[in-house]
Amino acid sequence: MTIKLGFQIPNFSYGTGVEQLFPTVVAQAQEAEAAGFDSVFVMDHFYQLPMLGDPDQPMLEAYTTLGALANATERVQLGTLVTGNTYRQPTLLAKSLTTLDVISAGRAILGIGTGWFELEHDQLGFEFGTFTDRFNKLEEALQIILPMLEGERPTVNGTYYRTENAVANPRFRDHIPLMIGGSGEKKTIPLAARHFDHLNVIAGFDELPGKLAVVKKRCEEIDRDPATLETSVLITVLVDDNATADMVPADMSQRMVVGSAESVADQIKTKVLDVGIDGIIINMPYYTPGAITAAGEVLKPLVNP
């Protein structure tokens, strides 16, 4: 598994009628594939996020969307950034992943996290609880999901979940790449070191060196080569020759870069790749045909020199 250059679709509000909504999603995925991105991600949410829009704005269900994108693309890996564990029983999630892997001929990625959007939980009837509750649920869910993805039949009688010889067939591969999103130094990073191929670090630019130091330490504590736990960061990108840094909202200044394509590439190289992060996943505030291509042209050489 390699996620060197990924594209995330964070917004389904395109100012079009609903009949053009999914064609616009397809256009982005196909443009990213043609531009050399190695993976395409969607959000796993049912409501639009507070920083992006109102809760009643369009939001497509993630795994239905990914299944359709599997038929509209040929090469890119497909996944969520990231699945909220609280939204599905682990057996259902394992089945969704193996099905996506079959449909896409081996291009599925399992991206997963604890879940965090409280309004979504409250209004749709998902139990939210404390962060500790959600993290404990994730740890228990992985005892079911990971064996099922590898063709085993786990029996679990846990605090949150129960299974008996659970099976997910058919499967396309013996191992679907595993990505976790987060940066908690006491829980998430150690969990990533124990079980995952990839850690999407949710942290600001200034925090990245410290997070990578923790990744190295947690891997070494369990005799894992830190180089085997791939890392990435999600960055919001605005490619616009007239855009300047003072246009970036204060709460996004540590996770967003703006400017010409060349300036964007220089900023990402300095703030992310030179620090030691392995790959980058970008999203864009809105979709302008050609913008993904422009970003890909300058970013691909940085991650595949």
Results as ranks from 00 to 15, higher is better:
209 P>W: 02
298 V>Y: 04
240 D>E: 13
230 E>P: 04
289 P>R: 08
289 P>F: 11
287 Y>E: 02
249 P>M: 02
178 L>A: 08
240 D>W: 14
197 D>F: 00
271 K>A: 10
295 A>V: 10
280 I>F: 01
249 P>G: 01
226 P>T: 07
299 L>A: 07
282 I>P: 00
247 M>V: 04
222 I>R: 07
195 H>R: 12
179 M>E: 04
215 V>K: 06
181 G>K: 10
229 L>N: 05
198 H>P: 03
291 A>W: 13
218 R>C: 04
252 M>V: 02
219 C>M: 01
216 K>A: 10
288 T>Y: 12
177 P>V: 01
264 V>M: 11
240 D>F: 14
290 G>Y: 15
208 L>V: 12
302 L>K: 09
278 D>H: 09
182 G>Y: 10
302 L>Y: 04
272 V>P: 11
301 P>T: 07
272 V>A: 09
226 P>Y: 05
172 F>C: 09
298 V>F: 08
206 D>F: 09
226 P>A: 06
272 V>M: 08
297 E>K: 14
179 M>K: 04
300 K>P: 06
258 V>Q: 13
295 A>W: 03
217 K>M: 11
185 E>L: 03
238 L>S: 13
261 A>W: 08
265 A>Y: 11
294 A>N: 09
287 Y>N: 02
296 G>W: 08
201 V>N: 06
265 A>M: 12
179 M>H: 05
194 R>H: 00
304 N>K: 15
242 N>R: 13
300 K>G: 07
219 C>T: 02
264 V>Q: 13
211 K>L: 15
244 T>N: 11
300 K>E: 14
187 K>R: 15
264 V>N: 11
225 D>Y: 02
193 A>K: 00
286 Y>C: 00
248 V>C: 07
272 V>T: 07
274 D>R: 02
189 I>W: 03
211 K>Y: 14
238 L>Q: 13
247 M>C: 05
196 F>A: 07
257 V>L: 13
246 D>Q: 09
259 G>H: 03
248 V>S: 03
266 D>A: 15
284 M>P: 00
227 A>E: 12
302 L>I: 08
191 L>A: 10
209 P>Q: 07
196 F>L: 06
249 P>A: 05
279 G>N: 05
296 G>H: 05
242 N>E: 12
234 L>R: 15
299 L>D: 02
287 Y>S: 02
291 A>N: 15
244 T>R: 15
271 K>G: 08
